[in-house]
Write a protein that binds this DNA or RNA. Sequence first.
DNA 1: TTTAATTATTGTATTTTCGACAATTATTTA
DNA 2: TAAATAATTGTCGAAAATACAATAATTAAA
Lengths: 231, 231
Amino acid sequence: MYRINFSDFFTSAFSVDCMLFGYSQGQIKALLIKRAMEPYNNFWAIPGDLVYPDEDLDEAANRILKDLTGLSDVGLHQAQSFGHPKRHPQGRVVTVSYFAMVRIEDFNAKASSWADEISWVPIHDIPVLAFDHNLIMATTIELLKQKLRVEPICFDMLPDRFTLSEFQQLYEYAFNQSLDKANFRKKIKHIPLLAHDEKQKMVKHRPAKLFSFAKEDYKTKVETIDYQFKM
Amino acid sequence: MYRINFSDFFTSAFSVDCMLFGYSQGQIKALLIKRAMEPYNNFWAIPGDLVYPDEDLDEAANRILKDLTGLSDVGLHQAQSFGHPKRHPQGRVVTVSYFAMVRIEDFNAKASSWADEISWVPIHDIPVLAFDHNLIMATTIELLKQKLRVEPICFDMLPDRFTLSEFQQLYEYAFNQSLDKANFRKKIKHIPLLAHDEKQKMVKHRPAKLFSFAKEDYKTKVETIDYQFKM
DNA sequence: TTTAATTATTGTATTTTCGACAATTATTTA
DNA sequence: TAAATAATTGTCGAAAATACAATAATTAAA
């Protein structure tokens, strides 16, 4: 085992990559930015930044999210860390990936202070990305899918009021398989949803009832009984 | 947004903390070491080390595991990263936690090159640890439990040949609830186990049959049919 | 040698969930 | 008013989960 000076270790930086997932037109999409500087100029990339010396990782992720979207108080999930010594051409940078789910419509206008161009890309059609971002993206999408199975996080992507079909289509897209309507509805019977009187408008067929996720009821349920969300 | 020099970021270090879980006497245990240097001299801690400048994170975790136990080729799982600016008194050190499962008996003798003292501590009785290791430990144990539900990783902790009751007791301890024997056996019917002719010895009651996990059959099953391990 | 104690193993019956599919309903557009 | 479209509800058999009972194999004590 070779010995190196203690101070020789303090020569790395770390960054946070902050993946945003949203849902529109029946597809789960990830927000990508087009880099406007070297290295990887003009490549699509996951939004991220170096972590400041006095920042905790979560803080950095929240900062990036805020810069990017104007949103705060969004549930952030830490995904994985990546640390290949050569992953960044300018030095040793270990990155920690986070992801969050947002309603794309909530802030479509903003997001300009960051990069020249941003784009919401369906997670099944991710292009070649800068750095090792394809690896990070793939890993994080897998984690997202895992969490979709055991936590009711999809409601952060859906509009506040959604139809049961929209809800179902989200899962169909995520797991790339079609589901039986009737059975889906039975399966979600245990999820506390609030049925509104309001109905879909402007559709050329029988309009669907609108629902929203009853977050508080859900929390109570989890605390009270030994309930585990499962899809 | 304040601007700092690019090079000012390259002043941090990374460490990897490598949690080992094993199973003995009906309890899941974590390996702790007693620190023999400042800071936190004499505190119990999770084994870990700084990551070398040319090492990937996984490599570092494997190195630590090897130093500690002599074992290589052990499945390592990345857990979470922790980066509070003040978590290490001697500088900014972000740590990535990993965990692995081992058979405690396999290497009891070794493990001396590391620290003065090591100890296998039941995960339900973790003492006060150095640094933020209690947070890391708690988070990682939760992740372990999550994985126990969806991956057949418990067999890395069980002896090569185990009884169904031992298997059951592992889950009972992990989730702190007792299970019905008959129903447990029905539930695990889908897990490919190899039944041996051999039986338990030296027990003062009807000896149980010994089983081992049929890893290859499991892999084939996963590849062939759309099978998801679930407990 | 027999019996009690202990734990392993298997079985049964009931309830709950899953999966495939059919039937009915509400709305828009032609 | 009918056709088209998708929403919603219902049925039935299969499979899985749950509670609990019965039987088997071994040791230790009587």
